[in-house]
Amino acid sequence: MSNGHIFIGETIGTAVLILLGGGVCAAVTLKRSKAQGAGWVAISFGWGFAVLGGAYIANGYSGGQLNPAVTLGVAIKSGVWHTVPFYLMGQLLGAMIGAFLVWVAYLGQFQAHLTDPEVIGEGETSPEGPETDRKGRPAGPVLGIFSTGPEIRNPVQNVLTEVIGTAVLVLFILTQGMTKGLALNGTGILLTSLLVVGIGLSLGGPTGYAINPARDLGPRIVHSLLPLPNKGGSDWSYAWIPVLGPLAGAAIAGGLYKLAFT
């Protein structure tokens, strides 16, 4: 596959991933949404189906990696590094496009949610700056639709949670090649999507399981740029954790694969 195919495939596939994944977060979160309050199980399955859709769409063009952590793990396994920049650029751009489309799809719900007196009362920004609301909290009231955040803000625990979840994901993907034909016929994508659901249900509670740097960083940038009323901060003080944690987890998974399975 050419570098152009990689870039196009990853851009489109990641855009679909974030559109559907961010979309389920918006559906569950926003007022005047029919799915409001559907809960964590709906979010976990929504992200699993988002991976399924995005990866199938991109598979023929780029392999459907859609995740810088997966790209890093695959590069460690294969030793092929020259295509990595094209994967990363497509993934970040696609994540931003997908997040923007979530806003377009839920435009009325965003407006209703962020002008609701109850939400404004909890999420007003403070004079100290846009990164904290009036109660000193770093995240705005709809930031969770775009990016992740911890339930308990402990950087060491938060990083370790992302490392562990991503290592499971990447090791699962890398070992698919050990089962003949699994990674080639589409079954591997289906199983990976189910694993994402499982990671969400089992390990998503502490941090919201980014397990994908582009999935978190691209939408966080879009959140900071969108003209959302009363949106609060984008929590940039936390943003390094869902980037470095997954990359570290991928490096561990890649190293473990080479040590144990080759």
Rank of each mutant, 00 (worst) to 15 (best):
P242E: 15
K135R: 03
E118V: 12
E128R: 12
G181R: 15
H113F: 13
F172M: 00
A35H: 02
V159H: 05
T132M: 13
G54R: 01
G94T: 15
I164G: 06
V16P: 02
Y106S: 05
A99M: 10
A167H: 02
L201E: 05
E151D: 07
E151Q: 07
V51W: 04
A55T: 09
I199A: 11
L195K: 06
R220N: 03
H113G: 10
L225Y: 09
G37Q: 04
S147P: 08
A95P: 01
K34W: 04
G13P: 10
T161E: 00
E131N: 12
L201C: 04
W240P: 06
P229M: 05
V102R: 09
I97R: 01
T11F: 13
T29V: 00
R137H: 03
Q109P: 00
A260W: 02
I57M: 00
T207G: 03
Y106F: 11
I76R: 09
V104H: 01
G204Q: 11
L143R: 06
T192D: 08
I8P: 02
A239I: 15
E122Y: 11
S202W: 07
N230Y: 08
G63S: 09
I152R: 15
G21Q: 08
G64N: 14
D235G: 00
N212M: 11
G218L: 07
G48N: 00
A210R: 00
W47I: 10
G177N: 10
E118P: 04
T148P: 11
P85A: 12
I199F: 10
V80C: 10
F86C: 06
I97D: 07
S234V: 09
V196E: 01
V41F: 11
L194T: 02
A260E: 02
V196Q: 05
S224D: 14
N158G: 05
A42N: 05
G53T: 04
P68C: 14
L19A: 11
M178D: 05
S193C: 14
G48P: 06
G149W: 03
I211C: 07
G54P: 01
C25W: 04
I241Y: 08
